[in-house]
Amino acid sequence: MAGVRQAAGELEAFAAAHGLAPDEIWSVQVALDEVLSNVVRHGYGGEGGERTVELAFGLAAGVLEVVIVDDALPFDARQVPEPDTETPIEERKIGGLGVAITRRLMDGIEYERRDGMNRLVLRKRMAPAGGAG
């Protein structure tokens, strides 16, 4: 999971370089953590070893964009059913939460499977420049 932490640092650095405050990007940090930890945990069918995930950040027209490209098993977060949030705590299954949180925190999610790679784009509108909080 060291790479996941590194990715969080990269996003932080990108945000700082573009004048984005931590309280604006936390939702993207959470979404990135969800996506990457999913790739690490489930993406390679239990196979160990070093894997490369490509990350790219962009900011255009007030929208922060994170592109995540990996060669893990195909996984379209948009197709995962909503988790069960009605069952009592003793019976509640702990799963599917990360995907639900990602979908709800982001303003847009794009997914494409191409040439054996997953390409996921997360988009989040940032507060207008100079705006508080």
Partner: peptide
């Protein structure tokens, strides 16, 4: 600063254990 579902899972697990 923020919590992701990995943190939620830990707290949910704790709540279940405490209830038990």
């Amino acid at each position: 600063d923020y919590i992701s579902s990995a943190g939620l899972r830990v707290l949910l697990w704790l709540a279940k254990r405490m209830q038990a």
